[in-house]
Measured scan of single mutants.
Amino acid sequence: MFYPNSPQTSPQLTQIPYGQQYAMMQRQIQQPYHPFATTEPQARLYPYHYQGPIQQEQGGFITQQSTAASPQYVQMRVTPVDQSIMSGYPNQTANGSSSSSFNYNIHPQQQQQQQQQQQQLRHHAMPVGSVPLQDDRYRKQLIVNYLAPDVTSTDLHELFSRFGELDGARIIYDKQTNMSKGYGFVYFCHAEDAKEAVERMSGYEFHGKWLKVGYSTNPLNIVPSNSSPYVHAGSRGAAG
């Protein structure tokens, strides 16, 4: 039997160049792979992502010199942007860049009308829970959420009447099932009393439920100042 490094198959040491006398086997001759043993700084910083320098080929596509990437890492192929796409944008300079302001050559009167329309939209648009300043009635009506099913309009009136005089209180019921929808409205005579009720009743436990109280901004629920107070009856038909 002959071994790869046996004296019968191995040459004389004098015939082997210096430095390879003890590297006779194939696994010894093959050098191990060192990912950080390279002179390129990109490979030292990113050993798993770097795959060699990027070269520009004919046709405008950018390719990489090395083989496919590892399945664990996804390499994105980048193509140059066609400058003709950006030619339609206004205020574009000769080098292809555009300024931040756009001039669509709008007539001054049209621009003024658009600004007025935007101001009107901001004036009428009102986020949930906010209180408008032009109508004091919005500051007097509250919406009470997360009410228990057994709470009546009379219970709601008695709960909030300790903060001040009320114009009314009612629970909203479903017309088909005649069941409470879980929320109601309270109408105060003074805005200061309503503000105190919002601050003190939010998070209050009532009939096993934690109440959420806020201003009601729905104009359909506003009680006119010259109208008669609501009837605080315990029956659902009268309260709904």
Rank of each mutant, 00 (worst) to 15 (best):
F2G: 11
Y73M: 15
Q118R: 13
P11I: 03
A238I: 14
Y138H: 11
T39R: 13
I62C: 11
T93Y: 12
H232E: 03
T152E: 04
K175G: 11
Q134V: 12
Q110I: 10
H207E: 02
D167M: 04
Q51W: 03
G203K: 02
A197C: 08
Y33M: 04
F61G: 13
D136G: 04
R44P: 04
Q8R: 14
G52T: 10
S10N: 08
R236W: 03
R200L: 10
G168K: 00
G214V: 01
A68Y: 04
S225P: 07
N5C: 04
D155K: 05
R44F: 01
I54A: 11
V74S: 13
P149F: 15
L156V: 06
Q141R: 01
P35C: 08
M24H: 12
S70K: 14
G208W: 02
S161D: 12
A69E: 07
P53T: 10
V78K: 15
N218C: 02
I172S: 01
G19R: 13
T63L: 03
Q8G: 08
Y22Q: 11
A69F: 05
Q113R: 11
Q120S: 08
H49Y: 09
Q120H: 11
K212M: 06
S153W: 15
N218E: 00
T67C: 10
Y48F: 10
K181W: 01
H49F: 03
Y187W: 00
P71V: 03
F160I: 00
V198E: 05
P53R: 13
P4N: 09
S99E: 06
T9Y: 04
Y187N: 00
N103V: 08
S97Y: 14
Y187T: 01
Q21F: 02
G129V: 05
T217Q: 02
S235C: 14
S153D: 11
S202W: 12
T79Q: 06
Q64G: 08
K140V: 02
I62P: 14
I172E: 00
Q134H: 10
P127R: 13
F61K: 15
N178P: 02
K212I: 02
P11W: 05
M126I: 14
Q116G: 11
S6W: 05
G164K: 01
I62W: 04
V81W: 09
N226I: 04
Q110S: 10
E158L: 13
Q109Y: 12
R170N: 02
A148Y: 01
E205C: 06
I54D: 13
S99V: 10
T9E: 10
L166P: 00
D193I: 02
K212N: 14
F188R: 00
Q8S: 11
V128M: 05
V78G: 15
Q8P: 11
Q26W: 06
G168N: 00
D155E: 12
Q72A: 12
E57N: 12
V231H: 13
T63C: 05
Q55F: 03
Q110K: 13
P11L: 04
N95R: 12
G96A: 12
A233W: 15
P132N: 10
S10C: 05
G203I: 02
T152H: 15
Q30G: 09
Q12A: 08
L13I: 10
M24C: 10
V186E: 01
G52D: 10
D136N: 06
R162Y: 15
T154R: 01
L211F: 05
G96P: 08
P224Q: 06
Q42W: 03
P32L: 03
P53H: 06
R137S: 07
M86F: 05
Y3C: 12
H124V: 06
P47Y: 01
G237W: 14
I16E: 14
T154A: 07
Q51N: 10
S227H: 06
Q8D: 08
Q56C: 08
Y183T: 01
V151W: 01
N91G: 10
Q26T: 03
Y204M: 13
Q58R: 13
N95G: 12
A238R: 09
R236D: 03
P53A: 10
T67D: 08
P229Y: 14
F160L: 02
Q26M: 03
A69Y: 11
N91T: 09
K140R: 08
E40T: 10
Q72M: 02
N178R: 07
P32D: 10
N218M: 01
Q116A: 08
Q72G: 09
P108R: 11
Q20S: 09
S235L: 14
G88S: 09
D193Q: 13
Q30C: 05
R170S: 01
S225L: 13
F36P: 14
Q64W: 02
P7K: 14
L13M: 12
K175A: 13
F160V: 01
V131W: 14
K195W: 15
E165S: 14
E192W: 15
K195H: 10
E165C: 15
Q26K: 15
Y33D: 06
M25R: 15
Q120P: 09
E199G: 15
A37Q: 13
S100E: 07
R77G: 10
Y187A: 00
P90R: 12
N5S: 09
P7S: 09
Q111F: 09
Q141W: 00
P35D: 09
Q42V: 07
D193H: 03
D155Q: 14
E57K: 15
M76D: 13
S235F: 09
Y230E: 03
H190I: 06
Q31E: 08
V223Q: 06
Q117P: 08
H232A: 07
P149E: 02
Q65K: 14
Q92P: 08
R162I: 15
A233F: 15
G60Y: 02
T93V: 10
G52W: 04
M76W: 08
V131D: 12
G129N: 10
Q20M: 15
V144T: 00
Q55P: 08
E199S: 13
Q110C: 11
Y138E: 02
P7W: 04
H107R: 13
F163R: 00
Q110P: 08
G60P: 10
A37M: 03
G164Y: 02
L133E: 07
G52Q: 08
H190F: 04
R44T: 03
N105A: 05
S99Q: 06
Q114G: 06
Q110F: 12
F188S: 01
G208A: 08
Q20R: 13
Y50P: 13
A94T: 10
Y3P: 11
H123V: 04
L142T: 02
V231F: 14
M179W: 15
D135T: 05
A69N: 07
P127E: 07
N221S: 08
Q12E: 07
R122Q: 04
S180M: 05
G96L: 05
Q176I: 10
P4S: 08
V198R: 11
F206I: 03
Q21T: 07
P132Q: 05
S101D: 04
G182T: 02
Y183M: 02
R139I: 14
A148C: 12
A191L: 03
Y187C: 00
Y204N: 11
S130E: 08
H49E: 10
Q31K: 15
F102R: 15
G60A: 10
